[in-house]
Structures are given as C-alpha cells and as structure tokens.
C-alpha cells in the first residue's frame, strides 16, 4: 500500500515538472519583467543591476532550478499588479474557491447519483424522461448563461438570494469560511448551483448508463434469484459496481470545478482564485498566472492520486499482485 502511494507520487513528479517548465517559460519569456518593474525611465546600469539581482543573467537551467526551489517553498515573487507576494494573494483567495467547489461537488454527487440510479432503474417512467430532458439543459447551457438566469430569477425578481459576493465570512486561523453565517450560506447557493449543474447532469447520465449496463450482469440476476430485497440489489450490488468509472469522472470533474470556477466566479464576483486569475490575465500579471497554473496542476495530480486510492478501496480485484499485506 505504501509502495503503491510512493510509486504514484513518483509518477506524478514528471507531470509537475513539465507544468513548472511551461509556467517558468511563461514567467521568463512572456513580456520583459525588468521593463515592467523599472517603469519607463531607466539607465542601462540600473537595468544590468536589476538583471543581476533577479538572476536573469544566469543560465536557463540554473534559473529554472531556482524557480522550482522557490515554488516548492511557496515563493512565487511579487504580483506586478498588486505588489504583494503571490503566495499571500492565493492563500487569501483559496478558501473562497475551495468552499465553492466543495459545495458544488457535494451538490452534484448528492443529487446526481440518486437521479442516475433512479433513471437507470425506471427507464420509462415520466420522471426519468423529465430528468433526462433536464440533464440535456444542464449539459448544453453555458455556465455564464445559467448563472445570469439564476441571478435574474432568484436575486432580481424574487430577491431571495444575493447576486454577488461571498456574504459575511468568519475567520478561522488562516482560513475564512462562509459556511458559518447565514449570509455566507445564502451567497453560496446560486454560485454552487451554477458551478455544479453541469457536473450534476454529467454524473447523472454516467451513473444511469453504468446502471443500465450493470443491471444486465449475471450477478444482478443471481442476486435477484437469491431473493435479496430490491434495495440491496440496486444500491448494494448494482451501484457499487458502477462506482469505478463514476469515481474516475467525479475526480476529474472535481479538478475541473476548482480549476475552471473562473466563469462562475466572474459572473458572481466571487472573491476566489478564479477571479484573481482572470484579473491577472487582464493585467498580464505573470507571477500570479504561473503560480495559479502550478497550483492547479498540483490539485489535479493530488485528485488523481486520491482516485487511484479509491479504486483500490472499491475494487478488490485491483488489490491482487500488490502483496497480501493490503488486505
């Protein structure tokens, strides 16, 4: 088990290194950091001094190694736009994005999985047809449009929920949370629905397709022939066998939710990393962009590792050949 984790982490290293390389290349070659930092009036001597101070005169690989070393310590330099350490900016914004992504993912799972099971079991009921039609909307409508429509209905017309921002937050050490206040929770509703709707419909359709497949399996017929109650057959024997593909997709989608919350955060002016990223793109704030890129790749790699571990937990057949110690 431990060897398995270590091997997965070692496999993830090349991925992280390549992303770091791209990120560093962007840092070094998109625009001229020296010109940006010095402003419009400077002498060649000032420029040379800054180049030497920043280490830009050193060979490429040395610079890259320094970049990696700093990145590993969470050191990404100063934001050009806000003149504050990038690491602080991201640490400030991360809780908002993570809470939003978490809520959206939980919503997508808690609603999507039961809907998928239902539509898989009762293919021809009118409710299933309704869910499937509804899921087409979720899959095909763009996120920003869903967000704007939700704002129109629930914030503008009905006035039930706020249309932007995060509401009141509570500070818990380095983390700020919106989960503990009423206004924070109310502010979370619309963005979470907007962000989670696509994932919800995707999960529903995936679970449905997998259920239809699994329900035809011999072991389901045998479970019925043994007289097991429907609940045990459907939610035990059938659903558990659909989990491996569902975990894969949910894992990837969770990464996507965190990475691409950009649109939702923009529509709702949600003070998270996505909004920070889009503002940094607008201002060509390279340090923030490259740090964000690295962070997202780290998120994906971590989620993939967790997904692999979950396979291991769900499917005993994957445990063979890894030594009996795993049991």
């Amino acid at each position: 088990m431990f060897a398995f984790i270590v091997s997965r982490i070692l496999q993830a290293l090349p991925v992280l290194l390549s992303v770091a390389l791209i990120s560093f290349a962007m840092f070094a070659y998109v625009g001229d950091p020296v010109a940006i930092m010095l402003g419009q009036d400077y002498t060649q001597a000032q420029r040379d001094a800054l180049v030497a101070e920043l280490g830009l005169d050193r060979p490429f690989w040395v610079q890259f190694a320094t970049f990696i070393g700093n990145a590993a310590q969470g050191e990404f330099g100063l934001s050009y736009r806000l003149s504050r350490p990038v690491a602080d900016l991201i640490a400030e914004r991360a809780p908002a994005t993570l809470e939003l992504a978490f809520t959206a993912a939980v919503l997508a799972l808690l609603v999507g999985v039961p809907m998928g099971v239902y539509t898989g079991l009762y293919r021809n009921s009118w409710l299933s047809r309704f869910f499937l039609t509804f899921s087409l909307i979720g899959v095909s409508l763009p996120t920003f449009l869903i967000g704007i429509l939700l704002i129109l209905v629930f914030a503008v017309w009905l006035g039930w929920l706020p249309s932007f921002g995060r509401g009141d937050t509570v500070r818990l050490g380095a983390w700020t949370t919106g989960f503990l206040t009423v206004s924070g929770l109310k502010a979370l509703v619309l963005p979470a629905i907007t962000l989670g709707l696509f994932q919800l419909t995707l999960i529903m359709r995936l679970v449905r397709a997998e259920m239809l497949e699994v329900l035809r399996a011999d072991y389901i017929k045998f479970a019925r022939a043994r007289g097991l109650p429907n609940r045990a057959v459907h939610f035990g024997h059938a659903l558990k066998n659909t989990l491996v593909p569902v975990i894969t997709i949910v894992g990837l989608q969770l990464g996507a939710i965190i990475a691409f919350a950009i649109v939702t955060e923009t529509v709702f002016q949600w003070p998270g990393m996505g909004l920070l990223f889009i503002q940094s793109v607008g201002a060509a704030d390279i340090p923030v962009m490259s740090a964000y890129l690295l962070l997202i790749s780290l998120v994906f790699v971590t989620i993939n590792l967790i997904v692999d571990l979950l396979y291991y937990a769900v499917d005993p057949r994957l445990r063979i050949g890894r030594g009996k110690g795993g049991h």
Partner: peptide, 21 residues
C-alpha cells in the same frame, strides 16, 4: 422475492459472472 432463494434456489451457468466481484 420471498420465495426466491427461500423456497426455490437457482444456480446459473457461468460461475465467473454470477458472483458479485
């Protein structure tokens, strides 16, 4: 359902696929 398994047991053809993995 209460009769299946209790009054009438069933054995299927392929033991590789009739047990839940």
């Amino acid at each position: 359902r209460r009769i299946r398994g209790k009054e009438i047991g069933a054995i299927f053809q392929d033991p590789l696929t009739t047990l839940n993995p």
